[in-house]
Design a protein around this nucleic acid. Structure first.
Lengths: 125, 125, 125, 125
DNA sequence: GTGGTCTAGACCACT
DNA sequence: GTGGTCTAGACCACA
């Protein structure tokens, strides 16, 4: 549990995204407690303050709530919220850029998708 | 011309990419002069030093050359070079991440591609 | 009975103030027993220790007394005591701040009072 | 410039409110630069990080914007935004509590207002 | 010059 | 036990 942090992103943001991914995947379920700031800091070999900053962001995104003296908990409905918000962002901001980029590089989307593993996200069929 | 700069990238890099895109698209042709540092800085509402830094990066990428007393010019062969390098990077680094992201969001690549528009951007057809 | 606790005040203090208000309003009469720590903790969805701390504060304010084996009771004269102390604090500390705030927001006190409702809450009239 | 900080509020929040008040009063005008993090930290005798935290909150409230490498600036329209938001909060949250408190203390609002200095916020007339 | 990030360590209030 | 706040000091990227 010492995820070599990337250089181009602050650690607290990477940790935040890690937690968000865990919620999305379901490995962190709604209502469940996040690992304590101190614990996660120990595991990840970072300063508690840095870990705390990651958690704060999750609170302000309303994915996580603080229960005083008890810890941080995944909010009910967090997963749906994440899914919805990220999809929106992807469709409106990221996807158009991706398409533009593919066109600029004069590549063919269909070829890319075929090469990826076929339709409906299955790896093999 | 005040392209709201993104927060997660330094301005000079965004400007550099903007110029590279222009070369790729063909709106900046090989042999052609780049707008002067001063002009671009004015238009983009940025510090001339920032614009200069972007141009320097293009020089060190060997996409642009400085002709003393005349300005900066797109190198012959810049477009092909860009196309080759960027395609590689896209296929090896960006595309896999995009696919992973789409799967995490439980979306269907085929649907995305279909929704993107009937004009299939194939190089040849 | 899950009164969304405010973030800027510890729960035990909010509970203490809640009880004090009840005494002031008369819904908790002098000589009457407070609900047991355990009960109030259940109702309010808080830790019994937190409820206990609130009650302890009321004891040290001499608004409530503990009768061993029986529970906590509102002291005779508690209401008058509260009324006197709180009025003083309100006039000296709170009211000036309120007036300053209204002025800072460029609002008119008279309008506020008028809008508050026709039922003028005078003691005598 | 060593404002004895209150005990019951974190310093960074008090500093944030101080700046917000300055915007409201007009002593910090829209478009103007805030004093740098380092400067304000020196003046206020606090840690730069604490000052930074205060500024961050102002950014997330969209009262202040960061211009990279230049500093923090009051957003155009910040004052109106503050005025509107704070008025709303006051009317919906604070005022009802104040009225309830006055009634609980069996005092008369009109008397309070009269004692304060008359109508329309004038101190003397 | 600007703000941002991170660390190590202390202290506190709340539950 | 939990998270929050603050400090002192270092280093970095950006303009």
């Amino acid at each position: 549990m010492n995820p070599d942090w990337k250089e181009d992103q602050p650690i607290y943001r990477q940790l935040r995204d890690k937690v968000a991914s865990a919620i999305l995947e379901g490995s962190l379920k709604e209502g469940e407690a996040l690992p304590s700031v101190r614990n996660v800091a120990m595991e990840m070999q970072i300063n508690p303050l840095t870990a705390s900053k990651a958690y704060q962001e999750l609170v302000s995104q309303e994915l996580v709530e603080k229960r005083r003296g008890l810890g941080m908990f995944v909010i009910e409905g967090a997963r749906a919220k994440l899914l919805q918000g990220e999809r929106k962002r992807f469709l409106e901001e990221e996807w158009p850029e991706i398409v533009a980029r593919i066109q600029a590089l004069e590549m063919d989307i269909d070829d890319l998708v075929k090469g990826t593993g076929g339709s409906k996200n299955r790896k093999k069929s």
